[in-house]
Design a protein around this nucleic acid. Structure first.
Length: 756
DNA sequence: TCTGGACGTCTTTTT
DNA sequence: GACGTCCAGA
């Protein structure tokens, strides 16, 4: 089959406007190619042109290209841009995320690894529910669903089944985690469900164990493109290798400095070692940055240069120096938010809101910004955090639909069997579980059985539920997804019960459900796939960012992780504090610090013209105020490109440097030690806010007042300790503290600050 | 079986 | 502060 569109562009047209390395990237199409693409170096541009070139000049058909991106959003963008270059009607069936590719592969040949065709995808809360069921079923206590889920997922990151991980890791057969994993495998199979890890691991096993299938993919995919290659994990990498044919036409693109998913199994080693793993590969470097001003780039480059695990590279730009990078130290998280919003208001005259973004390390940090924005009536959009599809009422409705598509789905069935309440309690559910296990049938079959032959009480309660579901199932044949969803909402009396509540909260839920119906309708229109299962599959794989409308004129707020791949005129990187960014949890391993630094690098390189970094001396965490010194990353920025403003505590007073061994830690390792700021005087705080109440607190009431037995505290002369007892209240409270040195003392609370 | 209150955990980051 | 879990009492 030849090229689809013959007239859409000569070689010259495709290469137009590209710099020499970008051209090389487009033209290098034989054998393995590694493109090291620095931040803002026009990678997407080069990639889309390359696809156009492959189609128009190399005789590769769109369906012969496997193109893997990291997010659905990136995939959509690439698809759009390719369509513009090659012709609107061209489809790229294999352009998507690794997970979506995995789904497609499983739909084709999943039975070979025991995955039935109508499988449902469990997200992590479904997975946790399933793990929980298994733990309960085995009668274990002392193991938390979370820790087991982590165990299972890490085994799956190595593509190991329960039996295999037992052998590999030499586990005792009665190891509790192992027993749960075994049970989990059985139950998942019975529910015809797969989890996120399965979407990668099962396709890998499928091609590994079935050479015929493997070679069908090898024939199909004549060219393989992988974006964000630095974030591939071992399973993904193995999957690529297992389906790559002898021509080895693979092109990977990435930036080792932007590897920020190590916790999810991403291995920078894949990009660092690509040239060795694929002998004869061409290496192309894209080092000209088109995005950021000179000073922003200088600041980011200086920061990342402290890392050791990286390809040495130099990004350059021919743009102006631009403005200085601003650093602002605020007294509290509220003052920080206030400062940032003040800046947003000032810039708003020249820069559209949609070109401004606030980044933070953790989702929980969005709160103060949201409050401040609402007060200022500035429209904003929070990406991530509690996702629409994670809301209880939405999950409930989806669970109804999942059971209709796949009645074996035990987790979803248990979710809805008593939602809304119909008098079916734990006892009955346990009976159903026991029966299902005893008879080797599914939960749904057990439910039907008990509706006919259970105790009279059970028959009375379960009967109507079974009728509702059977009635809905009757619609499956020839009704649209939208109709079925609407009927489910009606017949389950879900809507009715919410309306009866008549509270603001219930109203919000009803609105969310309406929004869900809209989404289902939209899906039917947009995708020409009117089936319920098509919709559910889509839902399982979309992220919040995918549905975010970046064109609306809203200020964007998101975590640094979500920000990867985006760019904004004005960027605020907030919460630059020791313990938050870098995050405490990253400090246990030596490599954790480097990943946090890469994260900061990603954040900074999103900015085109204005970049501001902020931190707060005191921040509300878990409901109480805690102090933390500024991030050591701030100290790594070259003084000549930054300006500090605000009257916040000065570096010398606040920096961890003054407290202990951080001063000469340029290439040192983060110690796990917890440092606290010295007590601060209110007048030193930033007072730029017009909202007095924001600054109206004192360190005493914020910290000491909240001390309890068990609180971890810090004292300027005695160091770290744990509170044993508190007596008195507020200002004059005395706390009995045992310090790490063994010393035990009664101390007036206001001399203590909270620690970790 | 349902409800409300006490209590503990949580916070890294997401397909 | 916010959510899930557990328990006592209706």
């Amino acid at each position: 089959m030849g090229p689809v569109i013959m007239n859409a562009g000569s070689k010259e047209a495709i290469l137009e406007g590209l710099n020499p390395p970008q051209r090389d990237a487009v033209l290098a199409n034989q054998g393995p190619v590694l493109i090291l693409a620095g931040a803002g170096s026009g990678k997407t541009r080069a990639l889309t042109r390359k696809i156009a070139y492959l189609i128009q000049h190399e005789g590769v058909a769109p369906w012969e290209i496997l193109a893997v991106t990291f997010t659905n959003k990136a995939a959509a963008e690439m698809r759009d841009r390719c369509a513009q270059l090659v012709g609107d009607r061209v489809e790229f069936p294999w352009l998507g995320t690794f997970h979506r590719t995995g789904v497609r592969m499983l739909r084709e040949h999943g039975e070979l690894v025991g995955v039935p065709q109508n499988f449902v995808i469990y997200d992590q809360s479904d997975q946790r529910a399933m793990v929980n069921r298994c733990i309960k079923g085995l009668g274990f206590d002392k193991v938390t669903p979370q820790s087991v889920a982590e165990f299972i997922n890490s085994a799956k990151l190595r593509a190991l089944t329960a039996r295999e991980v037992a052998v590999e890791d030499d586990l005792r057969p009665d190891d509790r985690f192992l027993r749960v994993y075994e049970r989990y495998e059985e139950e998942m199979k019975k529910s015809a469900a797969v989890d996120f890890s399965d979407l990668l691991m099962q396709p890998l096993r499928m091609v590994r164990d079935n050479p015929v299938v493997a070679s069908s993919y090898k024939r199909r995919w004549r060219y393989v493109l992988v974006d964000e290659f630095q974030d591939t994990n071992q399973v993904q990498y193995d999957l690529l290798r297992a389906t790559l044919n002898d021509e080895r036409r693979i092109c990977v693109v990435g930036d080792d400095d932007q590897c920020i998913y190590r916790w999810r199994g991403a291995d920078v080693g894949h990009i660092l070692g690509f040239a060795q793993d694929f002998p004869g590969s061409t290496v192309i470097r894209l080092e000209q940055n088109y995005r950021s001003s000179g000073r922003i780039l200088a600041a980011a480059s200086a920061l990342i240069s402290s890392n050791t695990e990286r390809h040495p590279k130099t990004l350059w730009t021919d743009r102006d120096h631009g403005e200085l990078v601003r650093v602002h130290r605020a007294g509290t998280d509220l003052a920080e938010a206030d400062y940032v919003i003040g800046q947003v208001r000032a810039r708003r005259a020249h820069v559209p809101l949609r070109e401004m973004a606030i980044f933070y390390r953790t989702n929980a940090q969005s709160r103060p910004f949201e409050d401040a924005l609402r007060r200022s009536a500035i429209p904003y959009r929070v990406v991530g955090g509690l996702k629409f599809y994670d809301r209880a009422e939405v999950k409930d409705m989806l669970a109804y639909l999942k059971v209709l598509v796949n009645p074996s789905d035990a987790v979803s069935l248990e979710r809805i069997i008593n939602t809304p309440t119909r008098g079916i309690g734990q006892k009955t559910i346990q009976d159903l579980r026991d029966y299902a296990r005893g008879h080797g049938c599914t939960m749904w079959e057990a439910t039907r059985h008990h509706a006919m032959a259970g105790t009279p009480g059970q028959q009375k309660k379960l009967g109507p539920f079974v009728d509702i579901m059977a009635g809905l199932a009757g619609l499956m044949e020839d009704s649209s997804a939208l109709t079925i969803a609407k009927e489910a909402l009606e017949r389950s009396t879900y809507l009715e019960r919410l309306e009866a509540e008549d509270t603001a909260e219930a109203d919000a839920r009803i609105q969310n459900l309406q929004e869900l119906l809209n989404a289902i309708e939209e899906f039917g229109v947009a995708s020409a796939d009117h089936t319920l299962s098509g919709y559910l599959e889509q839902v399982a794989l979309v992220s919040d960012l995918d549905s975010a409308d970046l064109s609306a004129d809203n200020l964007m707020m998101m975590t640094v992780h979500t920000a990867k791949g985006l760019e904004f005129d004005t960027v605020f990187v907030t919460g630059m504090e020791y313990g938050l960014f870098p995050h405490f949890n990253s400090m246990e391993e030596a490599l954790g610090e480097e990943e946090e630094r890469r994260l900061a690098y990603v954040a900074m390189t999103r900015a085109k013209t204005h970049l501001t970094l902020t931190c707060a001396g005191q921040r509300r965490r878990f409901g109480t105020y805690e102090s933390s010194p500024p991030s050591p990353f701030l100290d790594e920025l070259p003084p000549e490109v930054i300006e500090e403003d605000g009257r916040g505590p000065q570096r010398s007073a606040f920096s961890a440097r003054a407290t202990s061994g951080w001063g000469n830690r340029r290439r040192g390792r983060l110690s796990g030690q917890i440092m606290s700021a010295p007590p601060v005087v209110r007048d030193e705080f930033d007072q730029s806010s017009g909202f007095d109440e924001l600054n109206d607190w004192s360190p005493e009431s914020a910290t000491a007042g909240a001390l309890r037995g068990g609180s971890r505290v810090f004292h300027p002369s005695f160091g770290e300790g744990v509170v044993l007892e508190v007596d008195g209240d507020d200002q004059d409270a005395k706390a009995t503290v045992r310090f790490a040195t063994g010393l035990q003392k009664r101390i007036i609370s206001r001399f203590l600050t909270r620690a970790g």
